[in-house]
Every structure is written in C-alpha cells, then in structure tokens.
Amino acid sequence: MQPQNNKYTLVIEPKRSLLDLNLKEVWQYRDLILLFVRRDLVARFKQTILGPAWFLLGPLLSTLVYTLVFNRIAQISTDGAPPMLFYLTGIVGWNYFAACLNGTSSTFTANASIFGKVYFPRLVTPISTVISNLVQFFIQMLLLFVVMLIFWQRGASFQLNLTALLIPVYLVILAAIGLGVGIIISSLTTKYRDLIQLMGFGVQLWMYATPVIYPVSTVPEKYRFVVLLNPIAPIVENFKYGLLGSGSFNLTGLLYAAGFALVFLFLGIVLFNRVEKTFMDTV
C-alpha cells in the first residue's frame, strides 16, 4: 500500500481564482509537452516524399513570388537590401508568428475529442504548438543563412550586425504574442464560432500591416500609426535590421512589443483557464 500523499490533494470547484494561472501543473506535465511536439513533427511528414523539406519550399516559393510581384512589378523599395534576402527574412520571421497564432487559435475546437476524455492542463497543447513551430523556424533560419551565404559570396551588400544576437528575444516575444492572442481567440470560439471566420483572412491581413514586404521607411506618415500599433512590426523590422542591416533598430517598438506580449499572454492564460473548465459543454 502506498502512503497517502497529501501533496496531491486536489480540489475541484466550479470556479478558480482569476489569478491562479495553474502554471505549476503545466510544469508537471512537461513530458507531455515534449511528446506532443514530437507527435506534431513526426505525424506531419509521415507519408510525404519531401518530408521536412516542405518547411523550406514554402518560404522559398513565397520569396520568389514576392520578388516578382512586389519588387519587379510593383517596384516597392527594399531599403537597399537584396530583394530576395529582404523578403525571405521577413517571411521567416512572420511565418513563425503566423504559425503560432494559427495553431493555438484552434486549440479547443481541434482537440475537443481528446479534451472530452481525459484531463491534463489544457495549456499544454498550445504551448507544444508554439514549441513545435520553433523547429520549423530553425529549419527556415538555416535556409536563410545558406541564402545569405550565397549572396555574401556574390558580393551583395548587407550588414549582419550585433543586434542579431537579440533574435532569441524576438522569438520569445513572437511566441508570447502568438500564444496569448491565439488562446484568447480559441477561448472565445468555444461558444461562438464567428471568430474562426475572421481568422481565415485576419492573419493574412495582419501581414500587410507588418513590414514583411515593405520597409517601415516607405510607409507614409499618415498611415504609420497602423504599423506603430502593430506589436509584430517592430519585431520583424528589428529582425531584418539585425540580419541585413536594412532599416533601423527600434528600441521603443521592441519594448512596446514586449509589454504587449506580457499583457496579452497574461490575459490569454486567465481567459483560457476560465474556459477550459466548462468548454466541453459548449464546444
């Protein structure tokens, strides 16, 4: 017989305190997070011929199309950076955010069958999404470095600089905003599915408010507030600056994004924890 262990004492009540973020329990389930990440990665490319090469093809093809459309045809400036590099950098940075947002925003609806049968802290699922997207990001970063190397050998002009060391910080902020906003949306969609419709094109539109295909410097003063309000904009801008030296380093923007991330992540977790208790009844 096992001794009764009081550290496991568990209380189930209709409502939990708002500020009880339940993060300790998430930590207890860290093995599950890693296994979910593994499942996501393994299952995704089973029975595909190219496997993880799909991670590379997506951004490569987008870069080619963007170069053709926005550079050659629309002739939008790239702030002096080689167009291919300019777009690829933007895409890699933006893609990570978009994948996090898309992945986490359907947490409840996509996992209803598993959530309906067994309990584990629901936050485990969106967190594992964010982490498995990180793998995608790293593979795309490798691609970016290879392309940069090729351009550097051909003598293209760009300046990798020290602010590139801040990329991990950018990643954390992107992940936090993607997770925060994503779980807010997923919490709101358990009952009313309207937001799912918005998500379909919302993420696409958000990209145009982010300097992925244009540098901030080309935005007319009148519209600059849109870019200033968008917390992803300074991250992508700084990301490009660190790798290519194009544009400028925006410290206030970075701090704003970090603040935004903290607030929305907190709000998201609070809302998510409230919804996870009863969402099975409404989903």
Binding site: Q4, Y8, T9, L10, V11, K117, V118
Partner: peptide, 29 residues
Amino acid sequence: VTGPTTGRITAHGRIASLLEVGTGFHPEL
C-alpha cells in the same frame, strides 16, 4: 473534463480516468 456548476470535490491523490481507451493515440505513430 468538465467542471461542476456547484459544489466541491476534495481528493487526496491523483485521479486518472479511463473514459475511453486509446485517447490521444495517433494513427501515424
């Protein structure tokens, strides 16, 4: 899996449930 509308449950131990076997099995793995 879902919360009560009213009331309180106190348990001294881990609760595991088998509401269905094979929950979360992934066919490809």
